[in-house]
Design a protein around this nucleic acid. Sequence first.
DNA 1: ATGGTGGCCCGGCCA
Length: 259
Amino acid sequence: MRIATWNVNSLTARLGRVEEWISQAEPDVLCLQETKQADAAFPHEAFTALGYESAHFGDGRWNGVALVSRVGLSGVTRGLGHEDDDQGPRLIGADCGGVRVYSAYVPNGRALDDEHYPAKLLWLERLRHHLTNECDPEQPVAVCGDYNIAPDDRDVWDPKELVGMTHVSEPERAALADLEAWGLVDAFREVYPDAGLFSWWDYRGGSFHRHRGMRIDLLLVTRMLAERTTYALIDRNARKGEKPSDHTAVFIDCDPAGG
DNA sequence: ATGGTGGCCCGGCCA
């Protein structure tokens, strides 16, 4: 079972690239972030034509997350299930082929002294509570998306340039560690220990060609799913060519039913 | 050098 995640930075602008990538990579489940669409604008029929079901959670200009699956899609939940979930449509979950899959778009903290920074930490804490309430860490669960956190210094082009900035701060990394303490594993990192493997590159200043990026798009999976993961890839090709997103697609291959 | 690129939708916000 191939599970992929991709922050597409507007699905309206990226639909052609997404259709092309699905046809070529053939994911079983694709988690999308930053669709920047209202539910009524989401192109379900484009995915139907490729043999996929889809579910979306979005309200217009900002944020927006979706699940696209060819192995079933049921039990859809939208949001954090918290009455003060006021940071926009950033989480959608569903049962896909025996795995509870979530597409998550973690808020960007902007800067350590910005009000959005504690809001980001709060959102991550609410995500952990939501998972605790809704899921069993002994079952196959995959929480995939744009975390806007580089888990450690291997995941940024130059840690020295990022001291004091968001995405690398100790509290953000501690929030990620809290999710891992609940029972999640960074599946890509289990396969590749190398530094310099990135999933996002700024549009500005030729960052992609200069290898100035970060690995902030993560597939966090429960232990049993991590143990059944056979392959992982950051598909850099999706960051190349005409009108790319600033993120590329990342996927794992796993066998949730097998050993 | 306090910029730069790209998406929203057309001035300014957001990443």
